[in-house]
């Protein structure tokens, strides 16, 4: 187990290094010239002299390797340069917007787990009966619902019509409800379906039948022998959901006027503000990879098969 965690921990910087190479190389080898974008965003007419000057100032006349090493070594010191558009330090701006995004995405993740596990459990417990059908219907609609449309519908119902919840902005718990629901419905539906299927599968296995034959109560069997094993795929799925929840948050922020990283990143991507795009992507990848590391560790701790064998789950 300790070996497994150590291996994962050592892999983390390697993955991030590889991601940083991809991010840097693809942007540099992409179809547009950063110097041109720099001049456009600084509103300087792109004369040949200006272009040459910008290339020298941005270090674009250096070999690619040198540029990458310079960028990476500053990045390691959390210096991602200044935005072409605003001339402000990128990382400082990111740190300013990040907490709001993390708050919303985190609440969406908690909501996903908090709602999907009881739902899936309830459905499995009442297989083929009303609760099962209700949960399957919710999940059926949930997996196809575009989160940004759901956001609109929620605003329409709970803010415009009923006036119960605020439609915009960040503040107390009330401000979190609608955007968090809009972001998490899809992951929640997938999870509920997954847990239901997984519980039904585990419930038919021999060790569960044996537990019943031993005379354990149904509740006890369900909790100790079915749910415990059935939760393993949910742990893996959660790692994937983190990525979807981050993506969903970026979209939903724009509907609810949530002061997160979304709008900043979107305008940078639209304008090809390279330093911002690089920092944003690397930051999101880091969050995603770290979350998945945590998920792997939780999985390893929960699954006795990994505690013994060295090979982990992919």
């Amino acid at each position: 187990m300790a070996g497994f965690i150590l291996k994962r921990l050592l892999l983390l910087p390697l993955l991030l290094l590889a991601a940083s190479i991809i991010i840097f190389l693809l942007l540099r080898l992409g179809p547009s010239d950063p110097a041109m974008d720099y001049l456009r965003l600084s509103q300087v007419p792109p004369t040949p002299q200006a272009l040459e000057h910008a290339r020298a100032a941005l270090g674009l006349d250096q070999p690619l390797i040198t540029q990458y090493v310079q960028w990476l070594s500053s990045a390691l010191r959390l210096d991602f340069g200044v935005s072409y558009a605003t001339q402000r330090p990128v990382f400082e701006d990111m740190l300013h917007f990040l907490p709001a995004t993390l708050e919303l995405a985190g609440v969406a993740l908690v909501l996903t787990l908090l709602v999907s596990i009881p739902l899936g459990r309830w459905a499995a417990r009442h297989h083929h009966r009303a609760p099962d059908i209700v949960v399957r219907l919710i999940a059926f609609f949930g997996v196809s619902m575009p989160n940004f449309w759901l956001g609109f519908l929620l605003v329409l119902l709970f803010s415009v019509t009923l006036g119960w919840l605020p439609p915009m902005g960040r503040g107390g718990v009330a401000h979190l409800v609608l955007p968090a629901v809009a972001i998490s419905l899809m992951s929640l539906s997938i999870n509920a379906r997954l847990l239901r299927a997984s519980m039904l599968e585990v419930g038919g296995q021999r060790h569960v039948q044996y537990a019943r034959l031993r005379g354990l109560g149904e509740r006890e069997v369900e909790r100790r022998h079915v749910l415990r094993n059935a939760l393993l795929p949910i742990i893996t799925a959660t790692g994937m959901h983190v990525g979807e929840l981050i993506g969903g948050t970026l979209i939903i922020e724009s509907i609810f006027g949530w002061p997160g990283i979304g709008r900043y990143a979107v305008s940078a991507i639209f304008n090809r503000d390279y330093p911002v795009i690089q920092c944003f992507t690397l930051l999101m990848v880091t969050i995603f990879v770290v979350c998945n590391l945590i998920v792997d560790i939780v999985y390893a701790a929960a699954d006795p098969r990994i505690r013994i064998s060295r090979e982990g789950v992919q």
Partner: peptide, 8 residues
């Protein structure tokens, strides 16, 4: 490529 969240 799989270390990136797809939408990001």
């Amino acid at each position: 490529f799989l270390t990136f969240p797809t939408f990001v």
